[in-house]
């Protein structure tokens, strides 16, 4: 469904963030992208919806090559890719409802969006999604009144109301406490399952990734160094991705936690 073909990004400073990355994500698959800071995880995700312009290579969603599109077509294709951010990136001074509905901006004309005249079915869908994440009663609160976990749920609603085929998730749990992190990861994977969404999840926490996804891709210095199921993630592999360290704790802890959960 999504195919990256020799995707390369070189920043103006000369840093090679992505080095001819090939990756294929089938429909409905949740994939975790792990790797040290600066490995290019964030760049990879942003190159897919072209918030960062890739230097060369192709991003094929369905059968459209996104890298060749003009700005109007690109906007239309962006509707099919919902994005969830590390620090939620909600518009703080808008209400929860406006934040969720802003996911429909790609579908609604300028006039209707300025005067907040969204179609009734969008409003209904927004309430359904808010109810699904348990925050429907907060609809008229301002986004900056919410806690971190609540904000991330709103962020998820905003991505889902786009009716996307693919979720791009950038460090969804990096600013959350361990318990909320799990709840958010569980919510994301459940929703992907319900809606048969593919997702690419950037994540720092290896244990958390192993817990929730079917496939893990390891990125190091702009290239893929591991691609396989969580069970194949051995100490050797982690050393290859992150460098020398005692990894036995990370993996062991995972087993214990899985029993508890």
């Amino acid at each position: 469904m999504l195919r990256l073909n020799k995707l390369t990004k070189i920043y103006k400073t000369g840093d090679k963030a992505l080095n001819a990355v090939d990756l294929e994500v089938p429909k409905g698959q949740v994939l975790a992208l792990i790797g040290p800071s600066g490995a290019g995880k964030s760049t990879l995700i942003r190159c897919i919806n072209r918030l960062v312009e890739p230097t060369s290579g192709a991003v094929v969603l369905g059968d459209v090559d996104l890298t060749r599109l003009g700005s109007r077509r690109l906007r239309r294709e962006r509707r099919r890719m919902g994005m969830i951010f590390q620090e939620y990136a909600l518009v703080e001074r808008l209400t929860v409802m406006e934040n969720v509905l802003s996911g429909r901006l790609g579908y609604v004309g300028l006039f209707r969006s300025v005067f907040r005249q969204f179609p009734q079915k969008d409003v209904d869908e927004a309430f359904r999604l808010l109810d699904r994440v348990g925050l429907a009663h907060m609809a008229d609160k301002r986004a900056d009144e919410l806690s971190g976990g609540q904000r991330q749920r709103i962020g998820i609603c905003r991505a889902l109301i786009q009716n996307p085929a693919l979720l791009l998730v950038d460090e969804p749990t990096a600013s959350l406490d361990p318990k909320t992190s799990r709840q958010i990861m569980r919510l994301i994977t459940e929703l992907c399952l319900e809606r048969e969404l593919a997702a690419i999840v950037n994540i720092h926490d290896v244990a958390l990734a192993q817990m929730f996804v079917q496939r893990i891709v390891g990125l190091e210095r702009g290239g893929i160094v591991f691609d396989g199921p969580p069970s194949d993630l051995t100490e050797d592999v982690l050393t290859r991705i992150y460098g020398e360290e005692d990894w036995s704790e990370t993996i062991q802890k995972l087993d214990v936690e899985e029993d508890a959960a």
Binding site: R76, E77, R104, L105, Q162
Partner: peptide, 13 residues
């Protein structure tokens, strides 16, 4: 800028 980026990612004009 992150809030702007998030709106941009939805396909907004």
């Amino acid at each position: 800028e992150k809030q702007v980026e998030a709106i941009e990612a939805t396909g907004a004009g």
